[in-house]
């Protein structure tokens, strides 16, 4: 699914499939997949430094229109952290296994490390920095603070964005369902029980 999206986006951006996969594969986000693909299709050039043409994308981030001219290999996560200096969104594993980079794209929670910024043309992105209204915390942020739903705070922005998305989805009715549907967000400090309490409070409000 992810690869297919990338491919479509790559073609529409004027890059050939061959160049695109070479670039993406080596960029690290697809590090594990790329050698396999390359072997299977024989498309990965051996000794060729590919020119990277920057592209321009327009993304609505937390209600503000941003125009970015970026390397096609830049993930949404790195665009936020390194290009826009919005470091609230965290990088824990950089390949979709920990959830620290969770943001809402068009209302849907996604791992921003598995999403290229180039795929976000015209999208509305909400990050942790966009949840509070001035000094008023979003109810989920306030609930995390009240229930101590974190320790080191590194997974917290992802947990909160994921929780906001979860409540909107309206799928989770029981504790077990909340737990299951939040399992893409790892908290190594182990504040899970408090995160559950925070989510339930917001859900029942």
């Amino acid at each position: 699914m992810e690869e297919k999206d990338k491919e479509n986006n790559g073609s529409s951006g004027g890059t050939t499939r061959r160049q695109f996969l070479g670039q993406v594969g080596l960029a690290g986000a697809g590090l594990q997949l790329a050698p396999l693909l390359a072997k299977a299709t024989g498309i990965l050039p051996d000794n060729e430094a590919l020119p990277i043409e920057p592209i321009t994308v327009n993304i609505m981030i937390n209600g503000s229109q941003k125009t970015l001219t970026i390397d096609t290999r830049v993930t949404l996560l790195d665009a936020l952290r390194e290009k826009l200096m919005m470091t609230g969104t965290k990088k824990g594993c950089d390949h979709g296994q920990c959830g620290a980079c969770t943001v809402l794209v068009d209302g849907r929670r996604i791992n921003s490390c598995l999403h290229l910024a180039a795929m976000c043309e015209g999208s509305e992105v909400t990050t942790i920095e966009g949840l509070a209204k001035g000094d008023d915390l979003h109810p989920m942020q306030a609930a995390f603070l009240k229930h101590d739903g974190f320790q080191c705070g590194y997974c917290t922005p992802g947990q909160i964005c994921s929780a906001v998305g979860l409540v909107k989805e309206g799928r989770a009715k029981t504790d077990a369902e909340i737990r299951e549907l939040m399992s893409g967000n790892i908290c190594r400090c182990g504040a899970y029980q408090n995160i559950l309490a925070a989510i339930k409070e917001v859900q029942n409000a």
């Binding site: 919005m86 470091t87 990088k91 942790i128 995390f144 009240k146 705070g153 922005p157």
Partner: peptide, 21 residues
């Protein structure tokens, strides 16, 4: 009491090593 650094942590305002401008 709530964590004194909690507000920064729930708003994405706490700065970790790789995040200095």
């Amino acid at each position: 009491i709530d964590r004194v650094d909690g507000r920064l942590k729930v708003t994405g305002g706490a700065t970790y090593a790789a995040e200095y401008k």
